[in-house]
Design a protein around this nucleic acid. Structure first.
Length: 425
RNA sequence: GGAGAGUUGGCAGAGUGGUUGAAUGCGGCGGUCUUGAAAACCGUUAAGGAUGCAAGUCCUUCCGGGGUUCGAAUCCCUGACUCUCCGCCA
């Protein structure tokens, strides 16, 4: 959520930012409502001040034996006017708030302006020594490999749950688990994170706190009976850990890492990249979340990306870093880097991680604040998160890159102590 | 799922209709005393909003929402959450 004061004071630059994100701005409507709101507030408060003043005098009058009948009648009408104004105010505020909840975060000034993913900017690329991007006629894709080695089962997943719920079987399941454990351990040992094992179902407030709701309602699974939402990412429960909290200066930065399953409806995206693992309704992800002081958040974003990159370097999987242009940026993000891993069979890059700085956009929604030492005024923190990483897309690259000419899979060295085997055949 | 108890400031905890934004204690901050520290004593100690250049002034907030009343932390209804007991259960 944006600060209403920011919108009030810089309407033009806010409009520009929203347009750069390819969204329609309703800034003028918002400002009109805001003005209406403030007008009602002053009217109502004037009456309340009067009411309070008279209220304190009533006990004295009673003691003195004065007649209060007329004052009571008078105050009754004042009270009625206050109720009327307050109910009008509630309506205006509800409307205003609803509109504000749909206003996207503004892009950071370092983000390239652009409309489509084609205008994203490649920042850097990494390949292990001696790696070749070339595809031979023997190169199998992850679906063929999964079937051949009996480690992935898409058909039975469809039977049990529906399409987009792949099943890992046998050594595939072990490999998946190894990957998750490796990534968690790596971040814990080599980077400075605290592990969280969050709930996979959260309430509506949490979904609003991180910005999934109300805007992306249709993309979210919902358990209506209990008012709970299966999380699309561990970002939601982990960032919301500190919702409505006042943190101390010395608590920051907070770095969390956690595994969760992620649930995505992907409504309306059928046919688009939906093959195999490329787009699924449930996948596994290790997520990093940072809660930091505002002045450090852009440095922290760079660190976050490097932490994710380290995993790929350890796994020896080629990747590139993309800076998203304004038009490709998500609703809540001010700046975002995607990490894409190489798929030899597809002969293209696959998005395996997304690292974003939300500045105070989520903090304002979730009301996460901190106080600086010796300072009275609380400030909003900045929040960031990044996948470190999502296993499904990563698994595509891993299987395809580590396949041998015999159609078997070598287990990456760093995973071997987790799998207990060195090859899948 | 059933029965009961509870939710007050950073924390603990009083307060059952009228100058209560809220006693008291702890903690925090400032000071007195002290060579220094402790103790003791004194003072201070919330958030949000409106308005204003500012100082300030005003409003709101005792879990959320609704109601009764001239007036609600206090009474009524309702929802959420926490705890205890019972049931079920990995």
């Amino acid at each position: 959520m944006l600060d209403i004061k920011l919108i009030r004071e810089n309407p033009e630059s806010v409009k520009q930012g929203i347009q750069n994100k390819n969204e329609k701005d309703r800034v003028d409507e918002i400002l009109a409502l805001d003005e209406k709101r403030r007008k009602i507030i002053s009217e109502s408060e004037e009456l309340k001040a009067k009411k309070n003043l008279v209220s304190t005098k009533i006990p004295q009058m009673k003691k003195a034996g004065e007649d209060t009948k007329q004052i009571f009648a008078e105050m009754k009408t004042v009270s009625d006017s206050i109720s009327e104004l307050d109910s009008k105010l509630r309506d205006v505020e509800t409307g205003l708030n609803e509109m504000l909840m749909f206003v996207p975060n503004l892009p950071h000034s370092s983000v390239p302006v652009g409309k489509t993913p084609e205008e994203n900017v490649e920042v850097r690329k990494w390949t292990p020594d001696g790696f070749s991007f070339a595809k031979t006629e023997k190169t199998l894709d992850h679906i063929e490999l999964g079937k051949k080695l009996n480690i992935l089962d898409f058909e039975r997943g469809a039977k049990v749950s529906g399409s987009g719920f792949p099943i890992y079987i046998g050594k595939g399941a072990t490999l998946e688990r190894a990957l998750i454990n490796f990534m968690l351990d790596y971040h814990l040992t080599n980077h400075n994170y605290k592990e969280v094992f969050p709930p996979f179902l959260v309430n509506r407030e949490s979904m609003q706190g991180t910005g999934q709701l109300p805007k992306m309602e249709d993309d979210m699974y919902a358990i209506e009976k209990d008012g709970l939402y299966p999380i699309p990412t561990a970002e939601v429960p982990i960032t919301n850990l500190h919702r409505d909290e006042m943190l101390a200066d010395k608590d920051l930065p907070i770095n969390y890492v956690g595994y969760s399953a992620c649930f995505r409806r992907e409504a309306g995206s059928y046919g688009k990249e939906s093959k195999g693992f490329l787009r699924v309704h449930q996948f596994n992800k290790v997520e990093m979340v940072k809660i930091v002081k505002p002045e450090t958040s852009y440095d922290e974003l760079e660190k976050l990306v490097k932490d994710a990159e380290d995993i790929l370097k350890a796994l020896k999987i080629p990747y590139r870093i993309i800076m998203l242009c304004t038009g490709d940026l998500s609703f809540s993000a001010a700046k975002c880097y995607d990490i894409e891993t190489w798929s030899p069979a597809e002969q293209r890059w696959l998005e395996a991680s997304s690292c974003s700085n939300f500045e105070d956009f989520q903090a304002r929604r979730a009301n996460i604040r901190f106080k600086r030492e010796g300072q009275k005024k609380p400030e909003f923190v900045h929040t960031l998160n990044g996948s470190g990483l999502a296993t499904s897309r990563l698994m595509v690259s891993l299987l395809e890159i580590y396949q041998t000419s015999e159609g078997t899979i070598k287990v990456p060295e760093v995973l071997q102590k987790y799998t207990g085997f060195v090859e899948i055949k």
